[in-house]
Design a binder for these strands. Structure first.
Lengths: 345, 345
DNA sequence: TTGTATGCGTTATCAC
DNA sequence: GTGATAACGCATACAA
């Protein structure tokens, strides 16, 4: 379908601060002061406001950024837009907006080349701050960025040793509680569908699993520790291997949402009843888990709290640049008991 | 020049194109030409590359944007980050990146004030293009933006009459097929959980429902048309009302994903079996629908195709500044048959 | 092809 | 407070 565009689109040069100053009979400096919230003589203010209205003036943030060195852009570098990131984005964009900034997003899909590309792009765009899940592959680049004065906030995966702020959840304790719950139900052969243990969250969730077993004096059986690589396919594959064992586990702790979906799919395909034949607890909670039959017992991350913390940390650092103190905010998780974990028969 | 206080952090002023030119013994113009991909004498190119490396030069996109009037930013204004938008973002950010641009996102949560704020912010940031679900509340502002030369792409909800590009799916036909499927199974009392019919997608999905009934000579019974307002709560509430009818429907067509979740929750709470007592078909598909017991029969939008189309439309329009034609791309949907709809007993 | 000079719109720095 | 003016870093005519 081809339509004619209105030809009367008056594409005039947009008004500048100079035009406003001229129309309002004041100096550009005065207009700039007005725009930036400084006190202005009342008469002038009214004239400026009238001029802005009349000229339909919109301040050019690009030019402002060039002078002030502040772009009011916060870069967000994520590996993927799974359910967790969707919800995070919802809250984060809201929280960031409160301070007059917006989110510039880049999704790298675990590709190191794209990670570097993203970091370069962000540097190029002169973002005010960067939020990212740490990735070893770009340790040096991030270090460099921080060295150049860019505030960075890590989440999900830490890059130890870098002078940055951090927002994490109690991955280890929450996982421990989740596995302890399975132990309380009488399970002893408990498997973990682990995320990448090079990621701090992957490691900590695994360590929580180890902790819980250790509390009850149960040794960690390597055959029950399978790597799911955070992905749905990895989760399905991992469960498949578990079911092929001579002594399959009676319960599984899955370390994130996509792997849980994969696990459920595999279990369904293999005709294994949850929780009849095998119990399941998931890290990460989504609305549909409550509707699944049975409901999926899950660790719920405080996503809104994470977003708020990120925004606050950034706002604080931008307001008072203090390279020495780096903040680490660690939030608690809830465990939501549903029907996917039941006492061992 | 003025030195930053605190001499320990090597927070030197970043290198500029001028520094590069000086180090490479060429003129700034030459460096600029190199940066923008024009041909350069080989010796110079090598010198420039060496200088960039040595100085760790990162081009300042802000300054470049000011001159070229191109920010390489694409604004994305969404109502909310539901599952659909998560997947969309995944593909869109990738597609947009191919052209060297990134996504500047803003989430308005159906608040007209925030919509206006977002539009102002985008204008201020001098974005190159805008992707948004149309909203009547800001018709005039969007019109103004388009008038000023900003390319706009609508999705999900159209704002008729505006000279913009459009990427939509065959909402009406896909809905018709979905309802036809229920009719084929013998259902006659079919309800629709409708989205906001002021949204073009809401209206078209409703019209598809009407079409399907009309084909079979079945009149539309108003009591079977309930407004769910696109939300989970609205969906739950709508189903509740349906179940209280003297003659409840034997099948429900839900017009989007959140409403389907709400519907499932309500049906579960009320102890109604799906599909034993009531059949269900959903617009929008998510991985978990396949794992639900029963699997949810759903209309799958080609989200990747939507993202690709958006990126292409923008790239095309930005490449050829004043094509007097607006493009409307309409994509087909698949219907995925699972177990939530079964023949009427 | 290369070098020079000018301007983009804003903020910052002065005197006043 | 206000007004005039110098940057900010880059792109681009224009002359060479």
């Amino acid at each position: 379908m081809i339509e004619e565009l209105g030809g009367d689109a008056a594409k005039r040069r947009p008004a500048t601060i100079l035009d406003v100053a001229k129309t309002a009979n004041v100096a550009v400096g005065t207009v700039s002061r007005y725009l930036n919230g400084y006190t202005i003589r009342r008469g002038n203010r009214e004239q400026i406001e009238a001029a802005i209205e009349a000229l339909n003036y919109k301040r050019n943030a690009v030019a402002a950024a060039m002078k002030s060195e502040l772009s009011h852009l916060v870069g967000l570098l994520v590996p993927t837009f799974d359910e967790f990131h969707g919800v995070l984005l919802e809250h984060l964009s809201r929280a960031i907006r409160r301070d007059g900034r917006a989110l510039l997003i880049y999704c790298h899909g675990a590709d190191p080349k794209i990670m570097r590309e993203a970091l370069d792009y962000f540097a190029t765009q002169r973002i005010d701050a960067l939020i990212m899940a740490g990735a070893e592959e770009v340790y040096d680049r991030v270090d460099e960025l921080i060295g150049s004065g860019l505030p960075v906030v890590f989440y999900n995966n830490d890059l130890k040793g870098l002078p940055a702020d951090r927002v994490f959840v109690e991955n280890r304790k929450a996982s421990q509680r989740a596995v302890r719950h399975l132990l309380d139900l009488g399970h002893r052969r408990i498997a973990i569908l682990s995320g990448d243990q090079h990621d701090s969250s992957g490691l900590e969730r695994y360590l929580g699993y180890v902790d819980a077993l250790g509390e009850r004096g149960i040794p960690v059986d390597p055959q029950y520790v399978v790597q799911g690589g955070w992905t749905m396919l990895g989760g399905a594959d991992g469960v498949k291997r578990l079911l092929e064992l001579e002594e399959p586990p009676t319960a599984i702790f899955s370390a994130n949402y996509p792997m849980t979906v994969g696990a459920l799919r595999c279990l369904k395909e293999q005709g294994r009843k949850v929780p009849g034949e095998i119990s399941l607890v998931s890290f990460d909670d989504v609305p549909l888990f409550g509707l699944h039959e049975p409901g999926i017992t899950a660790v719920a991350q405080p996503v809104e709290g994470i977003a708020e913390a990120m925004a606050n940390v950034i706002a604080a650092r931008l307001a008072r640049p203090d390279p020495r103190a780096s903040r680490a905010i660690i939030l608690d998780c809830d465990i939501i008991l549903r029907g996917s974990a039941r006492p061992l028969a």
